[in-house]
Design a protein around this nucleic acid. Structure first.
Lengths: 344, 344
DNA sequence: CAATACTATGAAAACGTTTTCATAATAGAT
DNA sequence: ATCTATTATGAAAACGTTTTCATAGTATTG
């Protein structure tokens, strides 16, 4: 009479039984442990394949305290830059045998804190995060770090790593390049629609902007510098304000593409000619900037490169951790590039 | 001499010890088991909070065979429709205490199969999938279904549920509405750029298109019906072909917005006036259709509604499963709506 | 008041791995 | 040949829960 199997899934014990070996040896063989004969190893691997064995992640994780799962928190997956980064991260991690739990904070600090908590209690092996624009206190990530889990911040990162690795774009250069481009295109009266200064993203872009202005002896009109959440509506009200005074700008840097698009729409409604009367530069190379008329000059951030870098660093960190080495990786700055289009 | 604690994390045993109760009772209290006194329950909950207890998902999952994790497979998270659906799903699931593992198939059947396998072996409690356009055999999902895990297909779904629940947009109506709109706008020579007929998405949209044409006595020119992957380049070559023959169309339905945008770009290059010479309808209400000039008439698919529906159904399925009821939910069709813009 | 049903709890097994410890087998050194 | 070091394996404990089974206490019924 055949044995009644309750579960469909074959376990390590089934392999052990089939090969007349102990479960310990099977486990070792599957994990490529050095102290197991090549012959046994292949036998185990073959049998595992034959029995269609799949490791039970939960049992494995419970014992070894590893989940093979990485947590990711982004403000919004629908943002083009993040969507590209996520895709790259996922594809790469997949190759290394890791799962990815993707979470969205919707740019809410409360949500971000809650998600961090959830991911922590889900025992992710590491956390990758692009923070909220309003995250100035990074205390909610400490738990992970204290627990020895690698934490990588990208795009929106704290000023100082407190045990985390930082990978961010060259925002200073981005701000510099876009202002410089306007200056070189002959603009004299340049405005800047930037994001909240709570984020060093915009601190750096602003610094780059100022640097370009200063170096080229262009005066900065303080009323033309906006620091506000970079929404479509905010950009509209900013541009409206800019154009209701006597002297109007002839060039405008925006720190995201949605704002650039809003500005462009305003000019269409008001009959302002772009690029003749006003030149516009965006930020991020959102696909919309390429298809709008006129197409918008913007800053490319190379999301694929960012994603690749993140995974490379992460795998290194995990490997180092495995071997007891705990090196704090210095911040990595990824390049940016100006994409010239019809708006300038 | 104080006891040395190895792990930072408090477990159920710590609560048990603190309250002089057994771990069993703690577990029951935490899971809101009926056979535990209200007094004990609150005492446990209080102590849990005080000790900052977090359930170990892996231990819990190992024993109960539940992960509180849902798998999601989409072709591409960067597609606007999917990004919106995902966001909604995630926010809703989060409220119900579920994690979400988001995976991208990149519209590759091989990838989709691999991901399904991974999610299965990660023991997700359920799977939500928007399939590849080329998924005609849904066998790789059978494992999950046989294992009793709820499977929900949305957007791109098989014709017949084999134990899975289907939630999809009203594609027939979408195709019908867009063709009807062109007809009512006076178009006589209408082309259709549709997707591969391996997906019933496009079968249905085409059927709707034909219905509208037939009902209104407009003849269909078979050379003007394209079934191909809906990429930018494919759309360009299709429109080029349409405009190199003697009689040219005066209206064109496209089954996604990228194609509509490609068509619009072609018309700009060729000096064809939209909407005067050619009217264009897209599909999905991608944000780009609203900002391009002229803005493109398209079909709204209500991604938020789709996401809400998915989660509602999923929670129902899981609850039913809990109670041993196994009802197969009939397919759900979500509405679509024509958004009129400047291209028609 | 006895018999029964229900409520509330504890002891211990179970989930499927990994890992520690012990030990057998083999190889290398004397 | 004997001793030591290395390689290869097994037995059993451990991870932190949930769940089954047993049982004590309490309420309900006849």
């Amino acid at each position: 009479m055949a044995k009644e199997k309750k579960s469909q899934q074959n376990t390590i014990l089934d392999i052990a039984e089939a090969l007349k070996l102990s479960p310990a040896t099977i486990s070792r063989a599957l994990n490529n442990h050095p102290y197991v004969r090549e012959k046994t190893k292949t036998a185990v691997l073959d049998m595992a394949a034959q029995l269609n064995y799949r490791r039970n992640q939960m049992a494995s994780g419970l014992r070894s305290n590893k989940t093979h799962t990485i947590g990711l928190i982004v403000p919004r997956i629908s943002m083009f830059f993040h969507a590209e980064v996520i895709t790259t991260i996922q594809n790469n991690l997949h190759k290394h045998g890791f799962n990815l739990i993707i979470c969205q904070s919707n740019d809410s600090l409360t949500m971000e804190t809650a998600l961090t908590e959830i991911l922590f209690s889900s025992r992710v092996d590491a956390l990758i995060a692009a923070c909220t624009l309003f995250t100035t206190d990074f205390g909610h990530f400490d738990k992970l770090i204290e627990d020895g889990k690698p934490v990588i911040f990208y795009d929106r990162a704290p000023m100082t790593d407190h045990g985390a690795t930082i990978i961010k774009g060259d925002d200073f250069n981005g701000g510099y390049l876009s202002a410089l481009h306007l200056i070189e295109s002959g603009c004299k009266r340049i405005a800047h629609i930037s994001g909240p200064l709570t984020s060093n993203l915009y601190q750096n872009r602003s610094a780059g902007f100022f640097k370009a202005m200063e170096t080229n002896g262009i005066e900065v009109n303080r009323d033309w510098i906006f620091h506000q959440e970079l929404t479509h509506d905010n950009a509209l009200s900013a541009i409206a304000k800019l154009f209701q005074s006597g002297t109007v700008p002839d060039g405008i840097c925006t720190d995201n593409d949605s704002s650039a698009i809003a500005v462009l729409q305003f000019t269409k409604e008001q009959g302002i000619k772009v690029p003749e009367d006003l030149k516009i530069v965006g930020y991020s190379n959102d696909p919309r900037t390429a298809i709008i008329t006129p197409s918008i000059t913007t800053i490319e951030q190379f999301p694929k490169l960012v994603g690749d870098t993140i995974v490379r660093v992460l795998i290194d960190l995990l490997r180092n951790k495995e071997e007891g080495i705990s090196v704090v990786t210095p911040p990595i700055i990824t390049p940016v590039q100006l994409i010239k289009r019809m708006s300038t």
